[in-house]
Nucleic acid binder design. Structure first.
Length: 271
DNA sequence: CGGACAACCTGGCGGC
DNA sequence: TGCCGCCAGGTTGTCC
């Protein structure tokens, strides 16, 4: 599910319910979901810490506590939401972790595929330190994009998916950005003209900002914290549009394997 | 350094 | 309907 727009929507959706609360305890039935420290230590260390602020870095949810930082990655099928009390304990068959809060609320982490992870650390950089720039930040300029692109010969789609190159872009928004920029996903990154580079820069930001405005894409597993669907998927040009006519030229959208990921594009508009 | 691919897990879907 | 193989929005590690 979750790329930058989906993660941002989750953070916005749970922030108000959490800030100011205190974590009393945690529960899990799948200890591997706790990446660090060891589960017993995690439980002891997080006890009685209050929640000061919530943020996002790439696809990671960052929760600032009184002494540590709680970091959550939803991977493919993770869902994070807050319930007012524990009454629906059995309602979610995929819940594998929750934090009990002082006002009776629970912060729940549900994940069908169990790929998601939670980290409790003092050292935020140890988890997210190697990530590239935030594409929606003002600091991410066309010049900085050109600079990072310079001298690299890598399949452009693989580069967009590389979190150390740029943070938060995943398979959906990579396909959408490449389409809107008119660039074939398999192009070597050093073959882009200055005009193509500028279009790609703009379209990365456009598709991500639109995704945030539409509150994320609910293709399959992703839901907003209130359980409803985002609307981003209703505005895709190519992702999940195989065989449908391209919005620009009418040619059928095709799907093929690029950088080991299903990749959707218009064979006519994207050369 | 780049690229291919398996692994981590489970559910959903298309095909037969 | 039932079973089977395939695919899935992410990331990491291994091998060539």
């Amino acid at each position: 599910m979750p790329e930058l727009p989906e993660v941002e929507t989750v953070v916005r959706g749970i922030r108000n319910a959490l800030v100011g609360r205190t974590i009393q305890s945690i529960w899990t039935d799948w200890p591997k979901i706790i990446a660090t420290p060891a589960p017993e230590l995690f439980a002891a260390q997080i006890r009685d810490q209050s929640i000061h602020a919530l943020g996002r870095r790439g696809k990671y949810i960052i929760i600032h506590l009184s002494h540590d930082i709680l970091i959550i990655h939803l991977k493919m099928t993770g869902r994070l939401y807050v319930v007012p009390d524990a009454s629906q304990h059995d309602a979610d068959r995929w819940m594998h972790f929750y934090a009990q809060l002082d006002d009776g609320q629970q912060l729940r982490f549900s994940d069908a595929r169990k790929f998601g992870r939670v980290y409790l650390t003092h050292d935020i950089a140890a988890v997210v330190g190697k990530m590239g720039p935030e594409p929606l930040d003002e600091a991410f300029t066309l010049d900085s994009f050109r600079e990072r692109l310079g001298g690299r010969a890598k399949i452009i789609k693989a580069l967009l998916l590389d979190q150390s190159f740029i943070a938060g872009v995943g398979n959906i928004y990579a396909d959408e950005a490449l389409h809107r920029a008119g660039i074939h996903p398999q192009r070597p990154s050093d073959s882009l003209t200055p005009q193509e580079t500028e279009r790609l820069y703009k379209m990365i930001r456009t598709v991500l900002q639109d995704g945030v405005d539409y509150e994320g894409a609910s293709i399959n597993w992703y839901r907003k914290p209130d359980g409803t669907r985002g609307e981003s998927q209703q505005h895709f040009f190519v992702y999940d549009q195989t065989g449908k006519p391209c919005r620009q030229c009418g040619a059928p959208i095709i799907k093929m394997r690029v950088a080991n990921r299903g990749s959707h594009f218009c064979p006519n508009c994207q050369q």
